[in-house]
Design a protein around this nucleic acid. Structure first.
Length: 653
RNA sequence: GGGGGCGUAGCUCAGUUGGAUAGAGCAUCAGCCUUCUAAGCUGAGGGUCACAGGUUCGAUCCCUGUCGCCCCUACCA
């Protein structure tokens, strides 16, 4: 356990013991961070809680509690403050020394696999900025979990047989009259951006449907052919979906997002996952066949299963349509059951692609598995990263589990929801999108794939790299070109990932080019810059004075006490030492934004230190060693947090 | 109509299970590069925490109501 957490728990225990002694009470003692650093390192507000119960002034209670406390290792004093706070001051030298001793191995592994499903882009067109938010949130949450010892499996669900793919296939076949061979040539032509081409085609097909509703028959025919897996339309479906998935994975790899398994809807269909789930649902009477009313001839789930309040037929959710086909939610229930290992059947698997580090992406298949496939699914806990507009459907999925009596798994299913990325009116104008007077007054305008209205992910990444490269070339005109390119890419990814993470999940992002392209203030590059500066100090000190000493031996208690009497130095050390407990809290609240905020604050504290203290110019050797250790410690923590955020540290900036 | 979310500085957003003087970035203004890199630092101005009640020793936070904005409420996903 991290040093800070150990002290927190020792204090809680001591207060609890004192509560039993003095008041014969047992209750949880929570600690908080004081409003001001000058109050100390920790504050115990427990006296306020007791004031009501004991009908006595909180300050008196706090005094009585503090008076009988035994000494705690690492704590130098307890003080009564304000109206009844017990403020804790730490023994700074002892705290610093215990940081040397803390194990570097990280947290112990936590048993039980966690499945995180994210990205899930319809494979029919280029990814846009909304998809980037999904992937970056999901990927960062995965990194947070892994950093804290959890076993995580990342799945990217591919809806390769849905309406959106069908529409693009219909566009190629009916609108463009293209054969599979011609489409394949487009895919293989390096001069063609196939996902961009599909982006435009999808918009054209959608507007064609608007003008000629009769053409909607194309969609039905195509869906039918794809589901049957036969004929030209099915062949086109496979070509389009596979090609687009490859492009999506390439886009996501640019920003450091990777996957382990691509479960596909085609296998959910062909391997009769739905049929199995259907039998289960019927057997347990989770759904029923409606014989009358507006849902006549459909299999429906009663609204009472997933919603509070009065039962109304209007709210019931159709799972199987009157024509016998299953809705997306039905397939999703089957998929969710499989994730927990509850379906009683499994996919077959084959290799899809490998990343440069050798790690493998697998895809589901409906016939014999390739050897070497790991055991997928069978999760203890599941997180579905899906935008908040689909919360109703996610509720239905969980209700399905509950209706089958899988309550533990229902409880372990989390809809990791987030709000959409819309466009600021200013950005719409920059993109040449015409807005009504009404839209101009709105805080944001929703993107629309059908209208082809949006910012493509690769365009944004390209633009970020271009801007970053200008800055790098400005600052490092003599550096090799390929190295500058690499640095620019790292800065661009840092800016993008931080931008998508700085907002909490339930806040709509009104995407604004000006803000997203900024490298100053609360941004990824700001944090990267602090890390680079720390690295520069360590490098220069080593160049000038040789390798660093063995800190544990070189830094005496007296020296540390003297050094960390300085508030700037102490606050920096303290903040840097809290990364572990911060990560745990961010995991518990499911909020990657908290990690981003922490990284920024740590970078800010370091920049503060950087301007107030010079390590190289420090004449006193012992004190220089202390500053050097602090720099090393902060650099390591910054590097770790950046890694969790999926942001790399450039060699220079 | 029903369900959910939001309303905090000029703008974009944080705000830990209710607690000490409500914070950050951007923008504006005034300073700081002969330095371990100024993608940085220091300072200033800027607030009816939408509004009205209630609970509480104490409310931006909890409850009720009102106003405004958004999403969902498909035999689309």
């Amino acid at each position: 356990m991290a040093v800070f957490q150990e002290i927190e728990s020792a204090i809680s225990t001591a207060i609890q013991r004192r509560l039993r002694e003095r008041f014969d009470l047992t209750l949880d003692v929570s600690l908080e961070q004081p409003k001001q650093a000058s109050f100390g390192e920790l504050a115990i507000p427990v006296a306020f809680q007791l004031a009501r119960q004991l009908k006595r002034p909180p300050r008196r209670i706090a005094e009585e509690l503090a008076a009988g406390l035994d000494a705690i290792a690492g704590v130098s004093s307890f003080e009564i403050a304000g109206n009844g706070y017990i403020n804790v001051r730490l023994d700074r030298a002892a705290y610093a020394q215990s940081l040397f001793a803390a194990s570097r191995g990280g947290p112990a592994p936590v048993p039980g696999k966690i499945v995180v499903e994210h990205t899930n882009i319809n494979p029919n067109k280029a990814a846009h900025i909304g998809h980037l938010r999904n992937a970056i949130l999901g990927d960062t949450f995965v990194r947070m979990l892994r950093e804290r010892g959890r076993e995580v499996e990342v799945q990217n669900y591919i809806d390769n047989t849905g309406v959106q793919v069908a529409d693009v296939v219909a566009g190629f076949h009916f609108l463009e009259k293209k054969t599979p061979a011609e489409v394949r040539a487009l895919i293989e032509d390096p001069a063609v951006r196939f996902d961009y081409l599909c982006w435009d085609l999808y918009a054209r097909v959608s507007s064609h449907y608007q003008q000629e509703p009769a053409a909607l028959a194309w969609r039905g025919d195509t869906l039918h052919a794809i589901e049957a897996g036969e004929g030209t339309l099915a062949e086109l479906g496979t070509l389009v979906a596979d090609a687009i998935v490859r492009l999506h994975l390439a886009t996501m790899f640019r920003i450091g997002v990777t996957y382990q398994l691509l479960p596909r809807e085609s296998e959910i269909l062909h391997l009769k996952f739905w049929a199995t789930a259907f039998e289960l649902l019927k057997e347990r009477k989770a759904i029923y066949f409606e014989e009358q009313g507006k849902n006549k001839d459909c299999w429906v789930m009663p609204a009472t299963a997933f919603r509070e309040g009065e039962r109304s037929e209007d709210d019931d959710k159709i799972i199987v349509r009157s024509n016998g086909t299953v809705t997306y939610v039905g397939k999703d229930i089957a998929y969710q059951l499989w994730k927990f290992g509850l379906l009683g059947k499994d996919f077959f698997y084959r290799r899809w692609s490998a990343y440069p580090d050798g790690s493998q992406v697998w895809v589901t298949t409906d016939h014999l598995s390739e050897s070497g496939a790991p055991s997928f699914g069978r999760a203890k806990q599941v997180f579905n990263v899906i935008d908040s507009r689909q919360s109703y459907l996610q509720d239905v999925v969980v209700a399905g589990l509950r209706a089958l009596d899988y309550n533990a798994q229902a409880d372990a299913s989390t809809h990791f929801s987030y709000e959409m990325v819309a466009l600021s009116p200013r950005t719409c104008l920059e993109l040449g999108i015409a807005l009504s007077e009404e839209d101009k007054r709105r805080p944001y305008v929703e993107v629309s794939g059908r209208k082809g209205l949006g910012v493509k992910a690769d365009d944004l990444i390209d633009k970020l790299i271009e801007n970053a490269l200008c800055e790098v070339e400005d600052r490092h005109p003599d550096a090799p070109a390929d190295e500058r390119k690499r640095v620019a890419e790292q800065i661009a990814v840092g800016a993008l990932r931080y931008f998508m993470l700085k907002f909490t999940r339930n806040s709509v992002i009104a995407f604004d080019f000006h803000e997203a392209l900024s490298f100053e203030g609360e941004t990824g590059p700001y944090v990267q810059y602090a890390a680079v500066r720390a690295g520069n100090i360590l490098r220069k000190v080593e160049e000038r004075f040789g390798p660093p000493p063995d800190f544990a031996a070189a830094l005496s208690g007296d020296l540390l006490a003297q050094c960390f009497a300085d508030e700037t130095l102490w606050q920096l050390l303290l903040l840097a030492s809290k990364s572990g407990s911060l990560l745990e809290r961010a995991i518990a609240s499911g909020e990657p934004a908290h990690v981003a905020k922490y990284a920024f604050q740590l970078a800010q504290a370091f920049n503060n230190f950087y301007h107030e203290h010079s390590v190289i110019a420090e004449p006193d050797l012992a004190r220089r060693s202390a500053l050097l250790w602090l720099t090393t410690f902060v650099r390591d923590q910054l590097a770790a947090v950046l890694h969790v955020l999926g942001i790399e540290q450039p060699v220079y900036m």
